[in-house]
Design a protein around this nucleic acid. Sequence first.
DNA 1: AATGAATGAGTTTTCATTCAT
DNA 2: GATGAATGAAAACTCATTCAT
Lengths: 220, 220, 220, 220
Amino acid sequence: MPKPTFFNLPEEKRKRILDVAMDEFATYPYSKASLSNIVARAGIAKGSMYQYFDDKKDLYTYILDLAAQEKMSYVKRELDQKTDFFTTFERLMAAGTRFNLEHPQLGQVVANALDVPGEGLLHELYSKGREMTIEFFEHMLKEGMEKGEIRGNIDPRLAATLMYSLVGQGLADYLLETLGVTMHEYLANPEISQKLTPERIEYVVTEVMKILRSGFEAQK
Amino acid sequence: MPKPTFFNLPEEKRKRILDVAMDEFATYPYSKASLSNIVARAGIAKGSMYQYFDDKKDLYTYILDLAAQEKMSYVKRELDQKTDFFTTFERLMAAGTRFNLEHPQLGQVVANALDVPGEGLLHELYSKGREMTIEFFEHMLKEGMEKGEIRGNIDPRLAATLMYSLVGQGLADYLLETLGVTMHEYLANPEISQKLTPERIEYVVTEVMKILRSGFEAQK
Amino acid sequence: MPKPTFFNLPEEKRKRILDVAMDEFATYPYSKASLSNIVARAGIAKGSMYQYFDDKKDLYTYILDLAAQEKMSYVKRELDQKTDFFTTFERLMAAGTRFNLEHPQLGQVVANALDVPGEGLLHELYSKGREMTIEFFEHMLKEGMEKGEIRGNIDPRLAATLMYSLVGQGLADYLLETLGVTMHEYLANPEISQKLTPERIEYVVTEVMKILRSGFEAQK
Amino acid sequence: MPKPTFFNLPEEKRKRILDVAMDEFATYPYSKASLSNIVARAGIAKGSMYQYFDDKKDLYTYILDLAAQEKMSYVKRELDQKTDFFTTFERLMAAGTRFNLEHPQLGQVVANALDVPGEGLLHELYSKGREMTIEFFEHMLKEGMEKGEIRGNIDPRLAATLMYSLVGQGLADYLLETLGVTMHEYLANPEISQKLTPERIEYVVTEVMKILRSGFEAQK
DNA sequence: AATGAATGAGTTTTCATTCAT
DNA sequence: GATGAATGAAAACTCATTCAT
């Protein structure tokens, strides 16, 4: 948790610090990400950082938390309208993928979490998100089963895990791949994003759903 | 690539070096893995390492390569007998998952690849394996389409990518999760593996196939 | 010297600051004692400290001064009744030792003075106390000589220095040692002091006086 | 303990490092003594220091150990000829004092030991010397009692502790004081030592012995 | 070919002190 | 007078890489 000092900072400065830190943690794995770098680029004194955060890990977990929250709130908007299972899932996938492509840094910050020493501590936070997401999918599946939208003879927990693995970075990576671009190149050249039209994203998501749908869907 | 020097080494010494390095790279993320540690545990001089490999990255990519090859050759054994698409894929998934559980280190080495700085260089190698696997799946799918085993209206490249994301660590992780065990705990307590009977693995794979099958399978 | 500001402070606050500082300087050697710690525990702003004292050293010397004064005034009470040299010295030793055991912090503050860098400045103050004490003993000795209580053929200054080295922490340390306790453990567990009865202290002091009085030499 | 690497160093270099380190630890209290300073003055790389010693504390304890050993071996030479208690003690005092004046740094290194954090650890080593010395004196006293040289009615442990407090820095400090010189000035101006003739040292030691031998009490 | 000491840039973190509000 | 954020020099320590033997 940041210290109160951090929240007393002028909006502009706080944002600058977070932006720079986000960028650093997205670019380098945790152990290579450098506080010295961050403060230099943010134009603040090294000691100041320690008046805002306990230590490097504290800063990182905060960034990670922010990333998770932003994605959550972005994706959650799709849940307002109640529809059937397949439509909801399709919307979630599309939103998640769009978010990953619009904020490629955030995804990288999460990916770099693997590197944090004292593994458990961080992993905990990192997988809390995974855990929650999987549980949400499981819930969706069970509801779908009750409504008769989903076949009854599938293991909901396992299916939810599968869904999670599809919703993560997977589709975004696939889309970049079809452009012959790696995530790193994409991070460096933001203008590439213009080649990824909403239609293109929609198409891929629909394709995936097509495959899954006739799999999950109850057979008449 | 290791220098010729490395291959002139007595078998026993070469193996020792690789074993220790594998363990180190499985235990720590790339940037935390320590050459000093490796040479100390392998009982060789630090300078020698640089007569075998160009640098840390060179050693790592070689280890990574070995890991990939081992998995490949393990999994490839399932391809001998020609059967239909679904049976083949099921066997591949089962074999991959068994391998991941029997050689958890190798999987970790791959997972830790994400951490390598200097971006593309490493990713390249890491995704060469990915690339090859996906292409293989794509080939399988197209063959299946021709034989009429697979629906014709799916994007084979996309589907292959999906298959890849299912075959990776995913199922192994899921199995460990059902035991309430993290990969780190599993690495530390190898005896846990006894709880993962072949039947249990078979069950999970069958479940996944059940889901996929009626999705991919051509409708009559 | 504290600035006037400090003396304008409400009694209660002033005392709190001094108590906390005393504790810190008793616990850690000068260079490890932390102003940040002190202000945090005293509940005042860091800047305020610099409105009370010039700097860390200024605060420390003041604390040191207080410690010396307190001990002085405690010990001086023994000087009211005029008696012979030996009785007076015995009383001083006993009082000094009791004080050291009752206020172990103060002794530690003095002991930690050795640590102050920038040499002379601090030593000066530290040894002002030493100087004064030795001079006082010298005076006592000379008086004793005149009265015929003390042999005339000893160097009073040297003897006074010897007396000083006996009166310091020495006896208190010895007493703790006989309990198998270090000064640090004693500081942490104040209840130990109950094992050090006045009789026990008296005994040790008497023993020392016995030695000094008639010397080591066997009596014929 | 230094690592083997250190002992493989050319004599000249090893000595230079120890000299510089000794000087640093004699000049500054442990926490202010700076490794960076030491390596700079010794003209070696910072990393090298860590190939010779585990860490700062390791270097310090080694220096401390050396200091103690040197003093020990210097003083022990006086023990060859068997004589009576008083003569032996007088010789030990004289030798100890001479040593302190000839190697003022070593005494300072010991004095600065108080500052080492994780107190116990270091204190242990520091007071092992104290412990041994006191026990040696105790032994001397008991022997003297058996031979009838020493009165039987004194507490030998307490007396030994007293003797220890006299043999330490005390006399050296006194001698410097009579020159109006502090230890720090003495360390900085080694030529002062010429004013401290052996006769002067002998005189002071004899004076002290006179006092101890027959006591303070006037003879009837 | 093997060794292992040497290197030094780089890391995170601490803390007394200053200064604008 | 009080505040507490800002500062930055300095600390201990790490480690991949080089190079003389």
